[in-house]
Amino acid sequence: MPQSVDRALDLLDAVAASPGPVPAKVLARRLGCGLSTAYELLGSLTARGHLVRTPGGYALGYRTPELHRSFRRQMRLGDEVQELLVRARRTAGADTYYSAYRDGDIAVLAGATAADPPTGGFGTGQDDAAHATAHGKVLLAALPRAARHRYLDAAGMRALTPRTITSPEHLDAQLAGVRREGVAVEIEESAAGVACVAVRVPVRGALTAVSAALPLADFRRRGPAVAEALRQVAAEVASFPNAADISPSTDG
């Protein structure tokens, strides 16, 4: 039974990662399972509304948006945050994101992107490479040292590019600067040709951040202006009535 659950979730992930409908034969091949097994699991996912069967193959079903709405509701992430990110994207001219540290994990909760795929390849969901992202760095910098190293021990510090920092000591030195300056910057650490900047949302007892990702050439021209735009966004998010509820207090 657990293996069937894993395979069903793998199928759902494979369909979600595809730019369009995926035939059952292709999915079975990707998962390394028999076609009959794939059809059985796909049938269950389709019956529950998580997938739909089209002439071109399987695609995400109409249940998927409801799951996302439920996630946003549980995160107390109101429409005002998404609307603010959209406005910030237009103002800053860069893909923008809202992230949080929660229960020992760092995740991107919302984003507003103009590029497809988004600049830097970021998307909503758990970030297991926070050591290489600007939003990750600004959140890690705000954590107590013990909590920060627990995260890094669990997630690891794999190299995403030749410029990724993979030394805890080197990262600690960089994060000290982030705490002094109040802004985190990463240049080609998570993706070649991309730079990111992030600032923490100033809410006591919560760890959230807003960030932007843009092509390196654009960042070199407009980096300070983008950082200032993010500071304004962070201040506005901090004024929301439920701002402190999105992320619980940091652990020690």
Rank of each mutant, 00 (worst) to 15 (best):
R148N: 05
G56I: 02
T124F: 12
L51M: 03
R158A: 15
G223A: 04
A213N: 04
G57K: 01
L67T: 07
T166G: 00
L85H: 01
A141Q: 01
S167P: 00
G43S: 09
G223F: 02
P55K: 00
G104K: 01
T208W: 01
V108L: 15
Y98L: 14
A38L: 06
V197L: 07
S44Q: 14
G34R: 07
K25Q: 14
E40M: 13
F122S: 09
P118L: 07
V15P: 12
I106Y: 08
G123R: 10
A94N: 03
D218Q: 07
D10L: 15
G56A: 11
T166M: 04
E80Q: 03
A132Y: 03
A16I: 04
E40N: 08
I106V: 15
L214K: 01
D79C: 06
A198G: 05
R30A: 13
R148Q: 07
T54W: 10
I165M: 14
G182Y: 13
E181W: 12
D103S: 06
L216T: 12
V138L: 07
G205V: 06
S70L: 14
T54Y: 08
D128Q: 14
G177N: 02
G111L: 11
L11C: 12
Y62S: 13
L109I: 04
L31P: 05
H170K: 10
P118K: 01
Q74T: 14
Y98H: 09
Q126C: 14
A209W: 11
P202C: 06
E83Q: 09
A94K: 03
L84S: 02
L11E: 12
T124Q: 15
S211R: 08
T208C: 07
T37C: 09
L85R: 02
L175G: 03
P19H: 01
A147K: 02
E188M: 02
P55A: 02
S18V: 11
L84M: 06
R220E: 11
V183I: 13
A154W: 13
S211A: 15
D251E: 15
A92D: 00
E228C: 08
P23N: 03
L60W: 08
R53A: 12
L41K: 00
A129F: 13
R87M: 14
A47R: 11
E236W: 11
P65W: 08
S239V: 04
Y151H: 06
G223N: 03
G125Y: 07
T119Q: 12
D218M: 03
A16G: 06
S44K: 13
V26E: 10
V197M: 05
R204M: 12
Q74E: 15
D10E: 15
R145I: 14
P117M: 08
A130R: 01
L230Y: 05
G104T: 05
A154E: 15
R29M: 09
Y97F: 13
A147E: 06
L109G: 03
A244Y: 00
A147M: 04
L216R: 13
L11H: 06
P21Y: 07
R179G: 11
D13K: 09
S249P: 05
A217E: 08
T164S: 15
G78A: 08
